[in-house]
Design a protein around this nucleic acid. Structure first.
Lengths: 164, 164
DNA sequence: TAAATTCCCTACTAATCTAGTCAGGAATAC
DNA sequence: GTATTCCTGACTAGATTAGTAGGGAATTTA
């Protein structure tokens, strides 16, 4: 398990998608502007998210990215693993044997901690943050302030439909 | 919150100290050998741990490092914060205002997640790993296998004393 | 007292990662 | 057809990681 700014970018971007889930795709240009990350860098991150089956791209005008699965099924651990791509689980000098074929006890304890951490993050889904009452209304207001009019408009009509 | 290999090195090294707590100081040369990290790099890490009041150095032959406080009072979050030294909590482009003085909603959600993570790690103490029954006996065996005879010897006499 | 051990500190370096730029191509809506 | 948006790959400055090197200070042991 590893957690860098890259992971944070991934998670916040996915939160953005989750907030507007069902409203329509969110463009990277939009996220780029709101989060202050370069567009091309976001494209690289989303390439990974897509390859890991977390998001789907929709091309053409009105396109963007949307969640590939319902927000209830996407965990924070998954997102971080997707963008950080930690193939290297390097505990010892490579593959688990400390010096004499025996792994240091501390390495085992670390593995235990690491697993606990993963389980913790794997228990937190996107929907836990986003599906709280009032969040989508708040998002709509923020979108208007931030000039994301297309999204705000779609959000509004989605909320009206929900109200009926 | 940030979690890199540096943080892992810090935590595993502290676990090593905690296992041998009360037995005597552990030398960096020892940890270096067992964990496969260069000595000088460890010295840099321990410089930070020392400055954050987590460890104490003992100079001269038979010296080394020991925990500055009981293992019950040292949390994983503290250790990671000490070695990673993340002063920069950079949420937005610097200090919290997204574009129009308003912070993006996703940033707030991230902050919430980040706090949850910190609380989680701040609830895990070194003693939770180390003070389980049998761990110190196991450590002694491992130390012998790995050529840490000085430690193993001290550990053994400490255990004998405990048994009385 | 001399020598060995260990912490402690600073400066330098190669390799890797981060975050970004640039340039182009492919699908789609209007 | 044109604008929009995803998608891909190559290249780059700067930061971080992990390690080297060299020296000094405190302490134990002989």
């Amino acid at each position: 398990m590893r957690l860098s700014t890259k992971g944070r970018y991934g998670v916040t971007a996915m939160m953005d998608l989750a907030i507007h889930d069902g409203v329509g795709p969110v463009t990277l240009a939009d996220i780029s502007q709101c989060q202050g990350i370069s567009l091309s860098y976001l494209e690289q991150l989303f390439s990974k998210l897509r390859k890991h089956g977390l998001v789907e791209g929709v091309r053409g005008p009105g396109g963007g990215y949307k969640l590939a699965r319902p927000a209830e099924g996407i965990t924070v651990a998954e997102i971080i693993a997707a963008v950080d791509e930690r193939v290297d689980i390097t505990n010892c000098n490579g593959n688990g044997d400390c010096q004499n074929g025996q792994r240091c006890l501390t390495h085992e304890l670390w593995t235990e901690l690491s697993n606990r951490l993963y389980d913790f993050l794997n228990d937190i889904t996107l929907s836990q943050f986003v599906s709280r009452p009032g969040i989508r209304e708040l998002a709509m207001q923020r979108d208007e302030i931030n000039g994301r009019f297309a999204l705000a408009k779609r959000q509004a009509s989605a909320l009206r439909q929900e109200a009926r």
